[in-house]
Design a protein around this nucleic acid. Structure first.
Lengths: 122, 122
DNA sequence: CTGAATCCAAACCGATACTG
DNA sequence: CAGTATCGGTTTGGATTCAG
């Protein structure tokens, strides 16, 4: 398996891809959808602190990248659901790991910050 | 293993941690240091496109979070090296996976974008 | 319900130049 | 070598309001 792309190169397309993944809310959306499609309002509720505007922008960008599919049901009342595509599912694997790392290493990081803070007192 | 932190909660400390990880250049620095400590200039060269200013800021933040250690050698000429701490090493695992995902899925994403672009022509 | 529109503030980032 | 200083521009995010 040859490595054709290198994120360390300034103009490599993978750089752009990595940038998109690193966008503020992408990791939250991917993780929120891990158990299946959700409605817009449900996503807003689940991802606390995100505004409709920003969520919309994130969703649009991810849809454009083929990470998720928007399904519109022509019912009464109307309903829209967002779900991960196969590509999005594959991204879920590493992004779930990142989320889990963040959740499980909070104490160490908070301690490190306090130590740094204390060191600055001198 | 109980889950004490939840990134979906607006005020959870893990949210801040995830934010730091997601900062523009953190993923690049962690990956660049995977094989051992490097000097400042070597990092600037390896991570193409990063400016000294931004790299310095990233390095300082990561040091404060206990992700990396700055070692100053009192030689002539002076030398400074940055290396991952144990905590940083543990973060390398998921972040390397993210980098590899980005590098290996570029074609699919570029195709998806072209499809989206073509669809908008109508 | 699912967003779109608008406005504003802050964060972020790059370019450039300079220092011990 | 290893940064710092300054500046400004772009991007981003939040608040709010409104609409199909």
């Amino acid at each position: 398996m040859a490595v054709d792309y290198d994120v360390m190169s300034a103009r490599c397309p993978s750089r752009v891809v990595l940038h998109r993944i690193g966008a503020r809310w992408t990791v939250f959306v991917v993780n929120a959808l891990e158990h299946g499609p959700m409605r817009f309002t449900a996503l807003v509720d689940r991802i606390q602190g995100v505004t409709p505007k920003v969520l919309t922008e994130t969703l649009r960008a991810m849809e454009e990248d083929g990470l998720l599919a928007r399904v519109e049901y022509t019912e009464q009342p109307p309903r829209v659901e967002y779900g991960l595509t196969d590509l999005g599912q594959s991204l879920l694997v590493p992004l779930r790991a990142v989320r889990e790392w963040a959740e499980s290493h909070v104490p160490e990081i908070l301690e490190a910050r306090e130590r740094a803070q204390a060191a600055r007192q001198h």
